[in-house]
Design a protein around this nucleic acid. Structure first.
Lengths: 185, 185
DNA sequence: TCAGTATTTAAAGATATATTTATATTTATT
DNA sequence: AATAAATATAAATATATCTTTAAATACTGA
């Protein structure tokens, strides 16, 4: 089983970090072009960057959530850049902040048309949710790795909830093996 | 059993008194900064003070409800101050009005993690209400003293309905003894 | 007669707010 | 016909609001 074979591709990485002891969000909003902060609406400041493309939620506590990067390296790049930019407007940041990947979303393709009703029955109703009138994907919760896989009749998958690329790969493999063993692949 | 041991703390005192034969709420609203009176919404005028912090409901009848004080002494302080302030705008008040404590809310901590399901069964379903999907606290009605205790799985308690600090202390003790006798503490 | 209106306060669990992203189906809008 | 929004999934962050309980006051509507 290879990444290439099933077109496994990381689509989104969510990471968190603590960049400072505290931030002045009002000052950041006034200095960062495009930054949006409305405390009554949501307690974090929203800031988007490109190259690489990502978005930040920046909080008064100094904590930051980074979303939208396509890989973990990009996460480190954009958070590093953000730190420099914050220093550039006089906001003190911590040295060498730890960055924790919290969620990875990946897509994959089993290259087969799937019978979701049969899959639902085969996997056992306690591990899945499938209500096609509500959402066309079957929701499959895997214990190890601890991920959730959305399975579509087209053979496409979305793997979410993982903390590492490996979690995504293994999630796809678990689904593939189970479908294979049920003769549904 | 001591206040200190269970961190019993009075959080709110509700008291009532009759300060005058009648009040002109429209005049009071115009003279007292921050006062709010909308007869159609509620028949009392709302007035908040600080140092000590409290709120008043002032009625045309001359009766007043005081809420939000942290102890009985503060209640007497703020009601005394209110009387002087009312005199200051020409509202006549009665001499030496009686102040009645109507409700005391206290918090406490048993310093133990509690099994609320077991407690519900042990105390008897006729004396308690516990619907964790609706509210995470178990509601326990005690006859003597006549208080209601909210019991949380964290070991924290809220005692309400008492008329004296002693009611709160005794309420905590009743709960402690009963949990102890059931081996749940 | 009762329930609601308003005020205060602690406890703690749920839900919502916002961000991102793939997937696919339906509905609504332009 | 094209586009947008809703449906569902995960995760961090941090606020607000709701749930419950008691009590006085007084007014309205069912």
């Amino acid at each position: 089983m290879t990444m290439a074979e099933y077109n496994i591709k990381i689509e989104n990485v969510v990471a968190s970090t603590k960049l400072a002891e505290e931030f002045d969000l009002i000052k950041i909003e006034s200095e960062f072009e495009g930054a949006e902060y409305n405390k009554q609406k949501f307690p974090g400041l929203v800031y988007r960057v490109t190259e690489p493309k990502a978005a930040f939620l920046i909080f008064t506590s100094g904590k930051v959530v980074c979303t939208g990067a396509k890989n973990v390296a990009d996460v480190h790049t954009v958070i590093g850049n953000l730190g420099k930019k914050l220093n550039g407007i006089g906001q003190e940041t911590l040295d060498d902040p730890e960055i924790t990947v919290q969620n990875i979303v990946a897509s994959a393709d089993l290259h087969a048309v799937l019978n979701l009703n049969a899959i639902a029955i085969g996997l056992g109703l306690e591990n899945i949710e499938y209500e096609p009138e509500q959402f066309p994907g079957l929701v499959y919760r895997i214990a190890e790795p601890k991920v959730v896989v959305l399975i579509f009749s087209s053979g496409k998958l979305v793997v979410t909830g993982g903390k590492s690329p490996s979690d995504c790969d293994q999630g796809v493999e678990v689904v593939r093996q189970q479908l294979d063993s049920m003769g549904l692949l």
